[in-house]
Simulated scan of single mutants.
Amino acid sequence: MQKIIGSQGLDDYTQTNTRAKLTDLVVTRNDFPTARYSIDLNLEKLMYCAMIIVRKNELKNKTSFTYDDFIYVSTENFGELTSPMARKEVVTATDKREIQRNAEIALKRIYTKFDNPTMLVKDGESEEPAKVPMMTYCHYDKATKCIKVRFAKEFFEYFYDLVKKVDEKTKSFSSHELKHIILFNSSYSLRLYRILMSYMWRTSEVTIDLNELRWMLECEDKYKELANFKNRVLNVAQEEINKLSNINVKFENVKNGKEVVAIKFIFNLKNEYKEQDQLKFIDKMKKNYLASAIPFSDDGSHFKTPDRKKYFKPPVKLSSKQISTLVNCPEFLLDYGHFLGNSDEETSKVIIKTLLAEKLDKLNAYKPIDLDYYFWLQVRRGIVKNGDNDNKEKDDQE
């Protein structure tokens, strides 16, 4: 028997629906944003709402989701998320009717245009990408004003249970709040934002081959002149991302001689979000420490006390995010410089990354790794976001 995720039955759907909220996290594997797919902008937004509802229902009802289950999203919920009008300080009855009407139109259009979307994902060294079905079912019910969708079995691994499986075989994943993409009017803005966020936890700059970028954005046969591609795609995305999201981005050409061969993106959290993340991360750490009777000082001096070693356990295994955080922390490279000799910075990072992945016991034998300390440093720099420490991510999701 199929379960209805998001409802206890159509008769009382509007009373029992689990709703997606603007502050809910969209969590996906990092090779999802860089995949190629053709999908209606509103359907893509609906897809992320459905992912959130799946997770929230599991937590709420203590049940597991399967690929046979349907997910329902109401026009009311979709409207309050996607309408700028719903962000007004005072939303009138007239506003609410307009929001509802526009949401109904959007969901009906999603149903009308639905065509079992499939994404192309680079698969190792193969020249041909894998074809992965994303959603296999869509139905709009006029009576309940709900849309009903079902994810494809093969698509599960790109969004499902990611925070529960952290081992050497687990693909890297990233997260962002729904509110940062839900008002975009351009699919290029949404796609580029998510591509950049897949890199956010390890760098603030990324260079993407121009042909690869065109492939991801399905612009191989569109806007062939670079100036046109910039005006119609990159400039539009940059403007919307800088205006509506939590990051600022700028880009520049990368040339081979006179030819532009790649685009370099420079991006950072906006100051207000950087400060919020710092406060959330440090406040959570402080509460945990004090609850366990572990010394904590706001200036971080507790990390340098002589008896610090008795308050933490060095890691016996690290995730890819944790390794990346340590590799990119100057203090960590300095503390473990014993293993680096006179290597330059890039070589040092390669050596340390290998040791963290394969010889962690040797590093701990030399000096037990105080993971909280290095994460605290990177959070203060705004490099690590709240929840990027994999040991804390599961708690953040719950």
Rank of each mutant, 00 (worst) to 15 (best):
L290E: 15
M200C: 04
D372V: 02
V236T: 13
F312T: 09
D24Y: 00
Y199I: 07
V121D: 04
P133G: 10
K131V: 13
A93R: 15
G300F: 09
E154L: 10
A227E: 14
N364Y: 05
E212N: 09
L107V: 05
S175Q: 08
C219L: 13
K153I: 04
R194C: 05
K243W: 02
N242K: 09
K284M: 06
H180N: 09
L377T: 05
N248H: 06
Y199T: 04
V384P: 01
F156V: 03
R87N: 14
M216H: 08
G257Y: 10
S319W: 03
V27Q: 08
Q15C: 06
G337A: 09
D396Y: 02
E177R: 08
L326R: 03
K280I: 01
I99N: 01
Y199A: 05
P33H: 08
T34W: 03
S348Y: 01
H180C: 01
V236S: 05
S38K: 10
I71Q: 00
P117N: 13
F332A: 07
Y366T: 10
N17W: 04
K148Q: 15
S174Q: 09
Q238N: 02
L183N: 14
V27M: 14
Q100Y: 14
Y67L: 00
N386V: 01
F32V: 12
E168I: 00
K270Q: 14
K56G: 03
T16A: 12
T75G: 09
L333M: 13
Q322F: 04
G9C: 11
F312M: 09
D115C: 12
F339Y: 06
G337F: 08
D388R: 04
P33R: 05
N61W: 05
S64M: 10
Y188F: 13
N391A: 13
N328T: 07
R101W: 05
K148G: 04
S64Q: 14
T23I: 14
E358P: 04
D12E: 13
D335H: 11
G79W: 03
V233M: 07
L22S: 14
S126V: 04
N61Y: 11
S64N: 14
F155R: 02
F375W: 06
H302R: 06
E346R: 10
S297E: 15
I266M: 06
K274M: 14
V236I: 15
R381L: 05
K45M: 03
D372Y: 03
L360F: 08
R232P: 01
T170P: 00
I369M: 07
F70V: 11
N235R: 11
V254G: 05
K362G: 10
D361M: 12
N246P: 00
I182G: 01
K284F: 08
P117K: 04
L192I: 15
I53S: 00
N42Y: 10
V206Y: 02
D123N: 15
T14A: 12
S74C: 11
S38V: 07
K310V: 13
L43I: 03
K224I: 15
S64F: 12
D298T: 13
N328R: 06
R87I: 07
V149M: 07
I266Q: 02
V27F: 08
N391R: 10
F312C: 10
F375H: 11
S187M: 12
Q278H: 14
I247K: 02
M134H: 06
V166A: 06
K243Y: 07
D161K: 06
L192N: 02
E218N: 08
